[in-house]
Amino acid sequence: MFKVENLNKVYPNGTHALKDVTFDVQAGEFLVVIGLSGSGKSTMLRCLNRLHEPTTGRILFEGEDVTHVKGKTLRNVRSRIGMIFQHFNLIPRRTVLTNVLSGTLARTGVINSILGIYNEEDKKKAMDYIRIVGLEGKENVRADNLSGGQQQRVAIARALMQNPKVLLCDEPVASLDPATSHSVMQYLKKVNEELGVTIICNLHFLSLVRQYASRVIALKGGKLIYEGKPLDIDENWFKTIYGEEAVEVTID
């Protein structure tokens, strides 16, 4: 699905956020990225859909080199990659339905999208996804009036409207309470297993990692330092990844 080779990212202020990161992502897997804040997880995810420009290295998406594509091609690549965010990033003051439909912008014409004209098929699909994420009846509620967990589910539905091959999740549960976190993770698992969408997800809680991930990679100071099964992360690895002082916090 993704093939990342020697990826480096240096920010204009000189911060070297990613150092020679190389890894593969297989179709259908639930890959979790762990590491401290500032270890480069978000940067890496944003390099994959080119929200951030990689400095050197190569990114292959479905066999196609997407490292430097521009304009229409770039938008086409992005449209095949869904993304959800820590702070949900929904459009404020707009309804749930409008938010979900905004996932189709890449294939809706500019004029039509400004006038709010979507094709019937997409509208039906939007209603279906709203039902799937358990928000039936909330279609016409303003998105900013929903709770955090509900907003994140709207964001999932929006991403699914893109018919994505892969879903990038940037700490999707970091601003949610434990119970809601699990519900959101369950939906992601469902998307992964039932719709066959590959998931790449940044997470903080190892208990969630063990429960949901099929494979884990760990970043530290911008370097990839671990790659393996979630259950293989023992005490030693934990201390390597999070530092000697760290104590594991669980979420249940």
């Binding site: 938008r75 869904g82 990033n89 459009i91 912008l105």
Partner: peptide, 27 residues
């Protein structure tokens, strides 16, 4: 304005005009 919705719209592969219309204008 918050950058979030702009980032989200860009990530869907929307055209820059659509990004402004959906990510900036409602705010």
């Amino acid at each position: 304005i918050s950058e979030g919705p702009i980032e989200a719209m860009t990530a869907t592969g929307a055209h820059p005009v659509q990004v402004i219309w959906y990510g900036v204008v409602p705010q």
